[in-house]
Design a protein around this nucleic acid. Structure first.
Lengths: 245, 245
DNA sequence: TGCGATAATATGAGTGCACATAATAAGCCA
DNA sequence: TGGCTTATTATGTGCACTCATATTATCGCA
């Protein structure tokens, strides 16, 4: 029996003392936390760990890869695996689609177009999108409501060169974000979270005093090298974006 | 040679027309974006896709698992794989260690203890940490500086029952966060991001006018079931937390 | 027809093996 | 000793095969 085909050596599978890859990951994480594997220090290679845990190297690989994805380990070919120097935590936060977020809270979603205008964008916007001076963009401001109460005020710039179809859409009825999500396969984007003082437009739309602290979420998306849209969403006071780490 | 041991059948490996799992993932993602696989709809099973792409089921599994992790697919045993109804985006943002964040920007890190007091915590804090009324906590306020300029004001409650060692530490010299990271292996935590108006303590520490909008990051960490700490970090005006999606 | 037992099925996971790739270590020659 | 080439090594990826697990579908029986 030359290659054994992955089983047959009398290993206990799925029962008894089998260690799943998750168990190995947990044990490795314990050692990291317990400083048995100190930050910046090399850990044993996959083959050795496989022997220690009595499993295949593939299984150890799966466990260590998971920890590397989570930011606990740095792995490089040949160089080996070492504990990350920075105990940086990676929090994966889910960017909600506003209508779904509202409906998930049991509210009724509402939408209102505030303004729509095609024209030259401010220099700052052009720079953020990497567009030449004088580029004409579609500027759309809209309001998302929860049970009729303002929830998010959205200030959006759309590049009609990249998505010409947007100009034909009745944005009074159709949410710009919904249309873009449906019609534009985008490749990458940037996200920035910040706190902002509500300016007049934001304050009046969200029905809060001017200068109120509001949570701002800015997104830029590209299709290949071509910028699609820059949107800043201002959440009503009290909004919290939460996740577990 | 009964099982072929994974090679030998004259397959082209790593060269020629081989499709890596990433290529399969990209193609699947393209089909999702292109609506060839519509939201909520089932996609072909792994075996069929493996045949289509001319690779092993393992490889397809890897690709689809990656997309499921990213939130594009919902997978259930036997039920099969379907395109996620919600095109929710998951952004992984890295929670920086402040000193490292500052040094990465080329600044000089500074730290100053503002206050330290052991006593009964407010009801709100007790509730957030799941502690009984009357629990005594260590309340530490501190300031992180970049080149001598206030960068982050930190308001922290530490449970001395969970981490008694903290009471012996000279927090005027040692950063509470640094000590905790070094000495307390924690298991899980919660993170909340929000915008807040600077109160008097925050405003005076960050040297900004009262009621200025500041970015607040709140973290709660547990060791098992025991709460360790609740910390809220108020960033100086203009702070942006960015990531790519 | 209704319902419980059973079969079928898709994904989840693991093993051994083989080769790919990247980066380091060693060797070699001028 | 400097610098180029080659060997070594740890991780990355892939394959065929096998069993596990969670559902769903089906069948048999009352």
């Amino acid at each position: 029996m030359p290659s054994d085909g992955g089983k047959g050596t009398g290993r206990q599978v799925g029962r008894q003392g089998m260690l799943g890859w998750q168990a190995i990951r947990d044990e490795a994480l314990r050692r990291i936390h317990a400083r048995e594997w100190a930050p910046g220090e090399m850990i044993p290679n996959e083959a050795d760990l496989a022997q220690e845990f009595g499993c295949a190297r593939t299984t150890v690989n799966r466990a260590l890869r998971d920890l590397a994805d989570a930011g606990f380990l740095d792995r490089r070919r040949k160089a080996g695996t070492r504990v990350a120097l920075t105990p940086l935590r990676k929090a994966t936060l889910e960017i909600p689609v506003i209508s779904q977020e509202i409906e998930a809270r049991g509210g009724t979603y509402g939408y209102a177009l505030v303004s729509r205008r095609l024209g030259a964008a401010p220099i700052a916007v052009q720079n953020r999108l990497g567009l030449p001076a004088g580029a004409r963009l579609l500027h759309v401001c809209a309001l998302h409501l929860c049970d009729g109460v303002p929830y998010v005020y959205e200030d959006r710039w759309v590049n009609p060169v990249t998505v010409p179809g947007i100009l034909q859409i009745d944005l009074g009825r159709i949410n710009a974000n919904a249309w873009l999500v449906q019609n534009v396969p985008y490749s990458r984007g940037e996200l920035a979270l910040s706190a902002a003082a509500a300016d007049d437009a934001v304050a009046s739309s969200l029905q809060c005093p001017a200068s109120t602290a509001v949570f701002a979420m800015e997104r830029i998306t590209w299709m290949g090298e071509a910028p699609i849209t820059l949107v800043t969403q201002y959440h009503a006071p009290g909004y919290r974006l939460t996740t577990s780490i």
